[in-house]
Structure formats: C-alpha cells, structure tokens
C-alpha cells in the first residue's frame, strides 16, 4: 500500500515504522507483538488480528492495519482516558471534526463507556467513532485486549485512547452505520435494569425469563436483540445463555425502558451488505466491522464491497454497538 493522507490498509511492520517516523497521524490495529515494536509517535493503536482487506476477510499477526489521518485535520490531539476522566472525552472532542476512540475489550472502562456514554453531555453532538480492541480467538484466556497511546508506547488494558481530529471550517464529518439486522416479528422484551446481563424481564408485557425464553423457543443466539432508536437499529449481541442460572450475558448492555426484539435472520450477508452500503469513495476516512459478523457470516476470504478495516470486539458510533459496521466520512460543507 502506498500510504497517503487519508489512506488505509494493511501494511508491514517496517512500513508502519516509516510512516510513524515520517510524523504521520495514524490509527493502527494489529497484533500486540507488532504494536509493541512501533516507535513513539503520533498514533493510537489497539490489538486485533482480524481485518477486512481489499482481498477479503483475513486474519494475520504479521501485518498492521493503518488509517492515516494526516492532512485531514487542521489539528490532531491524542489523549488517554481512565474511567474517572472518560466523560471529558466529549468536552475535548472538537466542535467541528471527529474523535476516534479505542477501548480495550472486556475492561472496566469499556463497561463504563457502554453503560454511561449515551448520557454524556453533548455525546450525540460530536461524531465519536471507534472500536473495541480484542485478540485472536485462540488466545482467549491467555491475553487481554490492549490499547496503546503512541506518544508513550505503553500498552493498557484498562485505559482508552482517542485521537481528536479538528477539521477546517470547509469540511464536515459524518458518522453512520450499516446494520443488516432489523427487528423481527416476534415478542418484545423489556428489562428492569440496564447491564451486560439479564434474566427476568417483561415479554410482551408479561413477566418472564429471557434465558428460559431462548431455550424454550430454541432461538439462534447469533441473532442479536435489536432496539429501534427513532429509526436507528441498535444491536445487543448475545454472549451466552445459562438456563440453570436463568441469566443471559450480552456483549453490550441492554438498557431499562427500551423495547427490544430479536433480529430477523439475514439470508445472505454479502448480497444484503452490498445492497445497502454506500460507495466507499474518497470521502471515507474510517470504518470497522464486528468480529461476530466475520464469524457468523463466514467472511474469511470474502469481500464486502470496498469497505476495509479491522473486525473488532465492539464498534463505537457515539455509543457501543454490536454486529454493526460503523464508518466516518469527511466531506465539503
């Protein structure tokens, strides 16, 4: 790949080092062993070895996926956040521009962001896009997902990193999603408490248990719960169901007071994706897709239009999403 401003793609470790040494502002995704070898510089990174490349879905520990944001912004700031100062993310985001955030999978700070970000002051006024770092599925239990602030090079599994990109007044950032899942025709679920797990709930207004429901109805748990946010379909993916405990675990929190339905099945992911995805023209700056789409839709070796980027353990489009492609464009005002 010949990296230019706004370019993206898989590169070798050596090429990534050259770009960093050249002073480029980069968002980098890759295996932890490679990220640790990168020099200090204007970059943020997160661990993940799954990618959608121009040739199709792939898994590699030998290359890094970069988004070169140099030249897009009039000013770029890199910040790290702990759970305590995470709400400041929105305050520090530029009024005209966007923020790219990476959060470590399975961490307390991810949990905090997932549960609280929708209520942050002005969260929906400024485009905040990003992803949740992860690891090779073979490494589950032996490593933790990390993020790295390139300014100091330290890997963290309990902090978030963000790149705030201020745009010139002539430019405008737009954040959107591609979600192939729609609410199915079935029952409506409402949960009493917000959280990453739930048991008892209301099913069409009657008391029930979600784990029991999944078992009795023999639900395919690859289908997420879908909530309709004024026309935006927001997924909550099911991590696992324990019918003995009567509890279901999720990859993102369900929120109390929100009506959920199980998704209608997606017949052909590639065909439907191609049909609804806008052309990835020159205005595309960043995109990422969900690792569950990679796994459940069997995307290894298959292309999804010209959309490339990491497959992640969660996607951020203002708030945490699941099984969704998120993308950001920068266009003339």
């Amino acid at each position: 790949m010949q990296a230019t401003s706004g370019s993206q793609g898989l590169v070798s470790l050596q090429r990534a080092v050259e770009l960093i040494d050249d002073g480029r502002a980069l968002a980098i995704a890759g295996d932890e062993s490679l990220l640790k070898q990168l020099p200090r510089g204007n970059w943020i990174g997160g661990t993940i070895p799954y990618f959608m490349d121009q040739r199709g879905g792939t898994v590699t520990r030998d290359k890094l996926y970069i988004n070169d944001l140099s030249g897009i912004g009039s000013r770029i700031d890199i910040r790290s956040y702990s759970t305590h100062n995470l709400p400041a993310l929105v305050n520090e985001a530029p009024d005209n521009g966007f923020s790219l955030i990476i959060l470590p999978g399975g961490s307390e700070i991810l949990s905090s962001y997932a549960k609280n970000a929708p209520d942050y002051e002005d969260i929906f006024l400024k485009p905040i896009i990003g992803w949740v770092s992860g690891h090779h599925l073979d490494d589950a239990g032996s490593v933790t997902p990390k993020v790295i602030n390139g300014l100091d090079g330290e890997p963290w599994d309990n902090r978030a990193v963000a790149m705030h990109v201020r745009l010139p007044e002539t430019k405008m950032a737009q954040l959107d999603i591609v979600n192939l899942f729609q609410q199915g025709e079935g029952h409506t679920f409402r949960f009493a408490d917000s959280g990453f797990s739930a048991g008892d709930c209301l099913i069409d207004g009657a008391t029930g248990n979600f784990a029991d429901y999944l078992r009795q109805q023999e639900i395919d748990t690859r289908l997420p719960l879908v909530a309709d946010y004024s026309g935006a379909m927001v997924n909550v993916s099911i991590k696992g169901s324990d019918s003995e405990r009567g509890m279901v675990e999720f990859y993102a929190p369900v929120f109390s007071g929100v009506d959920y339905k199980l998704a209608a099945p997606v017949v052909d992911y590639i065909d439907e994706f191609m049909a609804v995805t806008p052309d990835a023209g020159g205005s595309w700056v960043f995109s990422c897709n969900c690792i569950l789409n990679y796994l459940y839709m069997d995307l290894e070796g298959k292309r999804t239009a010209n959309i490339t980027g990491p497959f992640t353990f969660g996607e951020i489009a203002y708030q945490l999403l699941n099984q969704t492609l998120v993308y950001l464009t920068v266009e003339d005002q």
């Binding site: 929708p118 209520d119 929906f124 954040l175 959107d176 004024s230 026309g231 935006a232």
Partner: peptide, 9 residues
C-alpha cells in the same frame, strides 16, 4: 444517526 440517538434519549 446522531439525531436519531439523541431524540430517542
């Protein structure tokens, strides 16, 4: 998208 999410909240 931002307006959809905001209005819901």
């Amino acid at each position: 998208l931002g307006l959809k999410l905001l209005i819901s909240r």
